[in-house]
Structures are given as C-alpha cells and as structure tokens.
Write a protein that binds this DNA or RNA. Structure first.
Lengths: 232, 232, 232, 232
DNA sequence: TATGAATGAGGATTCATTCAT
DNA sequence: GATGAATGAATCCTCATTCAT
C-alpha cells in the first residue's frame, strides 16, 4: 500500500528561485493581507485566495512575489518577528530605585508576553514548529532572548551591579522572565480567561521583583511576600 | 434573478450517526492512530484517510466510532488530558528537608512540562484554542492547575506551613511553577534545542527552590544564588 | 464526558465564493453539460464529477461558475424555464374560424406539454419540489400559467368575445388546458408509451375544442362528440 | 477517457435471487419503514441505514428480505400501487341523476389525484421513471387507468348509456378525468399552493360535469358555464 | 436467522498552483 | 507585471453492501 501520497511536503520550498515581483510597496501590501489571514486562521487554515483577496491583489501577483504559501508564511513571520517584536522591548526605563526599574521591566515583559502580536506569533510558530523550525529560532532570538539579554546586560552594569550578587546574569534574567509569566502567560497562550487588569499585572510585577531581589540583592533585609488585594 | 440560492439541507435532522461503533479495543486502536497523526501534523494538517491508514481501519470504521474529525480530535485530546496528564504529577515525594521536598517537586514539574505528551498537547491545543476552547480548559485543569493545586495544598500543611510565610498559597505555587519553567519550557514548546541533562534540570530545580525559599521561608539566612557548572 | 462535540465552523463567514467565473461561453458550456446530466439522472442522481466531465471542464471550474450543486441545478432550471419555455407558446395563431384558432392553440399546448424539454423540467422539478420550491413557482409562471393567461386574454378579446359566454376566463382557459392533456400528458410525464402521431394529436385537439365550445359558445348547434379513427 | 465508471447500474437487480427472509410480518415491517423514508426523501435521498433504523431491523435483515435498495424500492412502490391505490376509486356511487353520479365521480377523482399517497407515488415514480420503467406501468394500471376504465364501463351501462352519446367511451372517460384535473392537479403535483376547499373542489367537479354533459348528453338544452363564487 | 461492525468507492467541495491573456 | 480562470489532487464524509458472530 505505497498508494496515496501521505502529506504535502510543506518545506520543499528551499529554493528561493523566481519571485519576480519587485515593488516593495506591493510586497508590503501582500504581507499585510497575509498577516491578517494567517493570524486569524493559522497556516493550514489560511488560503491563498483569501490572502490575495484581503491584500487586494490577484493570486498571480501573490505568486510573483512569493514562490509558495510556505515562503509567504515564513516571510510574514520573519517580518513580524524581526520588525515588530524587538520594538516591544528595546531598553530599560530607569526608575528611582533598582526595584522601581525592575518593576518597569516586569510590566514591560508582561505586556510583551500578553500582546496580541506576541500571542499570535507564539500560536502559529508553535503549531508549525515541526514544519518550519527556522521560524522558532528567529522568534526566540528577537523576542524572549532579546529581552533577557537586555536585562542580563543591565544586571551587570553599574550602578545596579554594585548592589546585586548575580553569578550567572543570563540565568538570573531568565528566572526574572519566568517569574513575570506567573499565572498569566500560560493561560493567555491557550486563550483562557485571564486577569489582565493593571492592578493584577502590577501585583505580579511587584511579586516578581520582590522574589528576585530577595535572592539576588547583595544585602538589606529580606522582604516578605506580597498578597493580591483586588480592590487595592 | 428570482430566487435566493436554495440550500439543500433537506433532511439534516436525521441524526444518522451517533457513532455506532462499540468495541473498546477498536476505539482505542483508532485513538492510537489519531494520536500519532494529530501529534505530528496538528488538527488541520491531519487527514482522516491518514488516520485510518495509520490505525489500520477503514475510513468507514473511523466514522462508525467518531462522528467527525472534530469529535475524534476532541476525544483524543480529552483522553490524553484526562487519563495520562494527571498521572504525571500526582503527589509530592517528601524529602529529608523542606528544600529537598521542593526540589523533588521542581524536578517532577520540569519533567511534566518537558514530557513529549505534555508538549504535544500544548502544541495542538494552543494551535486550535480558538476552535476548541473546551480543550484548553480541560488541559489546564488536568495539567498545570492540578500541579499547582497540589503544591498550594502542601504549602499550607504542617510541618512545612510552620516554616513558611505564604499569604497566598495559590499564587506562591504558581510562582514556583513559573520558576521551574526557567530557560527550558518556552524553548521546548517551540521545539528549539534545549539542555535537558539531569545536571541542568537539577540546577534549574535547585535554583527555583532557593529563590522561592528566600522569599517564602519564615526565617533563616538568605541563601546566595546558584551558578551552573556544566561539568559538575 | 465533558464537552459537547464542538463544531468546526471556524470561519464560515468568509464568503470565499460568489462564483468568480465570468466567461458567458464557458458558463453556457457548463449549463449544457448540467442539462444533459440533470435531465438524465435528476438532482440527487447527478454528480458534479459527471457534469464536469460531460461539460468538458474541471471540477474546479464548475465551482468557479456555480457555488454549489444546488446553485447549478437552480441556474439550469431557471434558465430553461425562463428562456426556453415561454418561446414554446407565445401567441395565438388566428385561424379562419374561432374553432380553427382554438385548434391551433390546442395543438400548440399539446406540443408544449409533450416536448422533451417540458417533460424533463416537469420530472426534475416534481421530484425536487420539496427541496427547491422556488423552481416550481418559476416553472409554473413561465409554462402553464403563461399559456392559460394568453388564452384567457384571447377569450375576452373581440371578435371571439362576441361569440362566447365566458364568465370566468381564467378557469375556462384552465379547463381547455386540462382538456388538451387528455390521454397524453399524464402518460408522457411517466415516460409511458404514448401515441403522439399527428393524427392522434389532431383528434385530441379537435375533441378538446368541440367539448369546450359546446359549453362556452354563446349560440349555435351543439356538436356531437368525435371518435378517433387511427387510419384517418 | 473511458476512465471512471459513470453511474451505478441501478437496474442491474434483475435476478430475484437470494432474499432468504421468510417472515411476512417482518417483510411488512420493513416495507413500512421503507415507505416512510422513500416517501420523504425519494429513491436517491433515502439510505438503507435510515430505512433499517426506521423499520426497527438491522441492515443485515434488510438484505435478507430484499436483495438491494432497488429491489426494496420496487417492492415498496408495487405494494402501495397494488394494494392501496385501487382502494381509492373502486366503484361509482350512484346519485339521483346522471349529473349527480358524475359529480360523485368527479369529486372522488379529485380526491384520488390530490391524496398524499397518490402525489407521493407520482413524485417518486416520475423522478425514477427512466430507471424503473416498470413502476410507472404498474402505477398507471392501478391508478388512472383503473379509474377511467370504471368510468368508461359505467358510461356504456344502462341507464346512463340511454341518455348519452359516447362513440369512444375510453376517450370520453379520459376527457372527464382530464377535466377533473383542472387547476388543481398540476399545481398539487408541484407542491404549489392549491385551493382544496370543498367549495372549490365542488365547483371544479360541477364544471367538469357540465362541460362533459354538454357534449356527451344525447339531448336537452345546453347548460351555461358555471362561475366560482368563493363565499357561496 | 438476525445482527451491526467493517469496508471502500464515490459524493460534494476546497485550494495551491499554473498560465494564457 | 498583473490578472484570475482553469486545474485536479486532496479533503471530509456517506452509504450500499458484505460477513463474522
């Protein structure tokens, strides 16, 4: 029974080949349409006709700019990932104290993690991770890794480096990043209802900072854990 | 242009199906095939023909046991989620000290999070969360929520409750759960290469415990952060 | 058994279709193929593959021109009904006498009723009347109703109105129409063998006229009934 | 392109063959289920599973009693046609006058023609006339032909034969039968709305009688045409 | 004999891709 | 370069029929 061809070879699009289209404006127009459709329906659920219609071009033009659905999908993910993700966490807003600065970071991370763009990219990349492994790498490098790198670098810079005891800044940054995901991130990724009120985000952020500093701050009294009071 | 295009519903109210298949063995056989295909290709990418072939039954038999692809998918997810996930984190192995016990928990959580079953469920549920929101709920209840509930309950039980200051056990458990995901979980979800050596997992586990206890332990000296030494 | 079987509607609100095909020639070509297959096998018995093969186009093209089998079926019936049926009985050919004129009408009606087109439409419309009630309306309006309307109008126009006593012209026309169906129409509808020789049609037509005028003619001697002599 | 087998050979069921079932009760039970399903969905639209379920037997039993769907369909039509149709017009109820008697006949014919059974048989037989030509013959013989035969015989029997001048009784009966279909029968066959109030049926019946007798009655004055007054 | 699970060809429909205009 | 009609393989699902129990 070597009969029916089992699955379409999604990733045979290795040859960058033809793609004769040249107008950057039209290319961008197509990518915008692709973004809307892929974001809503995922890779398998999106159809090239839909994308063409949404982008306002013909299917022929689509194929002039992108050799295949797979290539278009990758281009879309790469573009979002490279151009939009990094903008969401570029630098650390310094606060009055180190704790203040870290709270800014924590809130920024939570916002990054729960942003529609990030969640959508997470969703489509996770679901196509086996088919397009490159996309996961790019996403990781431009999203989580960039954020933790910035934080790790900050941890080792004066003046905060004076106050901290951080033997492995990368790992410490990743712990902080993990703490910022408490309760919210996993649920958001599965589109389960989540409390994203500013008060709750603030609580999560301050809790993350407190737990982090209780370990990584060089001296000073241990801070007791926080508790969430919804109305506060 | 007289008529609206008439829709040939005709007699949908037949309820011809209701899955007449009854043999539990064959049902299990089908679910096994479905597991392989859904796990590899996701919901949209899997075809009923493929599943039938893989399960060693005809397409007709598939539909004798499951009314539609959606129903089969849900049955598969529900079964994995209800029957296999809870087995992966049932109880807390007590150690000599509270830190030992928490290290056992941390290792168990990391293993749960990085298990192929859990990752696969995560992947397909995330990618179909919009279509099948119930599945996310079930997964959450049987996986992460169960784990954190068990941990939260343990935190409030003597003797460890004597030694801890945990105003919000659920949140504390979720912070611990988040800490256990440091570095590993996000990468694993995207099928990126990940260091899952026992040594590294041990390091992550002990780091989580240390950070956790530095905040939630009622008294005692602050423990300095750990550093990973790969060769150790 | 948690969840209700989720229905994967997902995104039916796409309106991906709307029949993009535009070439009238190809549309006509498809309708011709559809005519042959629907006429022979009826709605349920016809398959889109067959129609595509017969029309000499691919299945995809079929769906570029018609959104579904139901739409194609309706288009086919509507076209036949609107464009071809009315041509078969447009006006009344006046004869030397009123009886002559009515005989022309009768023969035209019998030909209409027994024409392959009319019989085919009758057959498929009757068998799908419950599913596509609009088609029956359209057929009736363009076929029988048009014919009886024309006749009813003629009955009330001078000079024949002078000679006739017709209190209810519509009903009178329908009686005449019914008389023209004597012996032939019912059998033809069931594809039973039928004597459609000109001589027999002539006999039926003249019998209808005679019976009709014996009641509706204002004065003059009653005409005795006719008898059919096959050899004549 | 002698490629795909175009249509299933519906009528290959010539060999009466196996059909090992023997219990007449079970056979009747199956036919009752078949009646309901075929009546509602037609031949193509009915499924053997549906029929089995509706009849309360297994599919295996179905095939023990009837070799195929085609055979079952024919058996169902034959049974209805032979056993139920003739009961609907068995004899002529004599009235005080010949006109009275004919009015009884006319009303009985109209009721026969518009009865659900007759319309259903008409529908399914017409739609499958090409596939099962035998059924049309049987239906005709047991329905319209029987009715017109009885009437033709009555026309030639004393005392009415004395009063009538009927050179071709069969044809005369068929004209009467045709007149009884005025306005109602064609519409009913297409499931178009039809006035079946007793008053209207009465009007149609009396009109048919009047028109008939104005030609076929041996003597007496011409009766003027009737007009329908709904409220009367 | 009665059952109903199993079969697999065939149904309507979709969609990535090509190519003549 | 842009278009969109045409293609046909692949999709989910149905159903007449068979056959082991």
């Amino acid at each position: 029974m070597a009969a029916t061809p089992p699955f379409p070879d999604k990733d045979k699009a290795q040859v960058p080949s033809a793609a004769t289209g040249t107008s950057p404006a039209k290319r961008a127009q197509i990518l915008e349409g692709a973004a809307r459709i892929f974001a809503e329906h995922g890779y398998e659920g999106a159809s090239m006709s839909c994308i063409a219609r949404d982008a306002g071009v013909s299917k022929g033009t689509l194929y002039n700019y992108f050799d295949s659905k797979a290539v278009l999908f990758c281009a879309f993910i790469e573009q979002c990932t490279r151009e939009k993700l990094p903008l969401m966490f570029r630098r650390i807003d310094e606060g009055a104290t180190m704790a203040d600065s870290l709270e800014h970071v924590a809130r920024a991370l939570i916002e990054l993690i729960t942003s529609p763009l990030s969640l959508m990219l997470n969703r489509v990349i996770v679901s196509e991770a086996a088919t397009f492994p490159e996309l996961a790498k790019t996403f990781w490098a431009n999203g989580p890794q960039q954020a933790t790198s910035i934080l790790a670098a900050w941890l080792t810079r004066a003046p905060q480096s004076e106050l901290l005891d951080v033997p492995d800044p990368t790992f410490a940054a990743e712990q902080f990043y993990a703490l910022c995901q408490t309760h919210i991130a996993g649920r958001a990724r599965m589109q389960l209802p989540v409390d994203t009120s500013p008060a709750y985000i603030d609580f999560v952020a301050r809790s993350a900072v407190r737990v982090f500093l209780n370990t990584y701050q060089r001296s000073g009294p241990r801070q007791p854990p926080l508790a969430y009071v919804p109305d506060a």
